[in-house]
Design a protein around this nucleic acid. Structure first.
Length: 293
DNA sequence: CTTACACCCTGCTCGC
DNA sequence: TGCGAGCAGGGTGTAA
């Protein structure tokens, strides 16, 4: 499910209910998701105050008042919903999504804010860890994570430097979280279409022989930011059962130009091509063979 | 070092 | 209507 815009949307949805609140009780309903929960997971969180809720790549990071960080990843099908605890009143409107199968409610956080935050994940590709703040940067989960595409670092020159010499296709290079972090299958397809670049083009062709960026690299860097920012403004993309924490739906999926549009008309003005679907490193790539080179 | 692929798990859609 | 095949937004480990 969630790529950077969806995870960031979830972060913004959870923040008002979590920041400043304490974990009063945790109901951990299984020993593992993708990985086992840390030992004494519930006990280590109970009583802790959440000081901040951040995001790095596709990870959510809740800073706790004892120097630890609760790290949460949604995998493919993870979602959070917010309910009011019994007898509690929450500011704002919260939504109970009855379409969620409670069999897949794996973790329930009851917070002093009056919020009950429920983690639901049918495929269980998500996971949670607790890591000391001081060890985050060197932790195996984070030490190889690449740059944030919405940060100040990403531009054509940086992209060209990252991709220089690579024979892997652009599609694979952009999905590689150790280079640029947070892109997934949807937004890679969409960014490549906007840039007019084929997902099959070798990543190294975005650098000139002297290592400087080509015009293509500048364009790609610009449209990566553009597509992520537009998706964020739309509350992310809602496919299948993904919802925002308040139960409403993101609507960016209505503006996909190529993703999941095999056989349909290219949406570039005056192009007239059709969207093709190919498989690259086991993942579907959607692109227009006419205007993406 | 690179790139490619299987795999983790459940649910949904499609074709027969 | 039932049933198997294939596919899904992610990431890791292994092999070549």
């Amino acid at each position: 499910m969630p790529e950077l815009p969806e995870v960031e949307t979830v972060r913004r949805g959870l923040a008002p209910a979590m920041i400043g609140a304490r974990f009063e009780s945790i109901d951990q309903r299984r020993p593992d998701l993708r990985f086992p929960f840390p030992a004494d997971f519930a006990a280590r969180l109970t009583g802790r105050r959440i000081e901040a809720l951040g995001r790095r790549a596709k990870y959510l990071l809740a800073d706790l008042d004892d120097g630890q960080v609760l790290v949460m990843h949604l995998g493919m099908s993870g979602s959070f919903r917010i309910e009011a605890r019994e007898g509690a009143t929450l500011l704002g409107t919260y939504y109970y999504d009855t379409s969620k199968d409670p069999a897949h409610d794996h973790v329930v956080f009851d917070l002093s804010s009056g919020a009950r935050i429920v983690y639901n994940d049918p495929r269980r590709f998500g996971f949670m860890q607790i890591i000391a703040r001081a060890e985050i940067a060197e932790h195996a989960l984070f030490k190889n994570v690449g740059l944030e595409p919405l940060g100040n670092e990403l531009d054509g020159e940086v992209l060209a430097r990252l991709f220089a010499g690579k024979t892997a296709p652009l599609k694979a290079a952009l999905l590689d979280q150790t280079l640029v972090a947070g892109l997934g299958n949807i937004y890679v397809c969409e960014a490549l279409h906007r840039a007019g670049l084929s997902p099959r083009r070798a990543a190294g062709t975005l650098a000139r022989k002297d290592g400087r960026a080509t015009d293509r690299a500048h364009v790609l860097a610009r449209v990566i930011r553009e597509v992520l920012e537009e998706a964020l403004a739309a509350g992310g993309s809602t496919l299948r059962d993904h919802r925002l924490t308040d139960g409403t739906l993101g609507y960016f999926q209505h503006t996909f130009r190529v993703y999941d549009r095999e056989g349909e008309a290219c949406r570039r003005d005056g192009c007239g091509g059709r969207v093709k679907r190919i498989v690259q490193s086991g993942r579907a790539s959607f692109y227009c063979g006419a205007c993406q080179r």
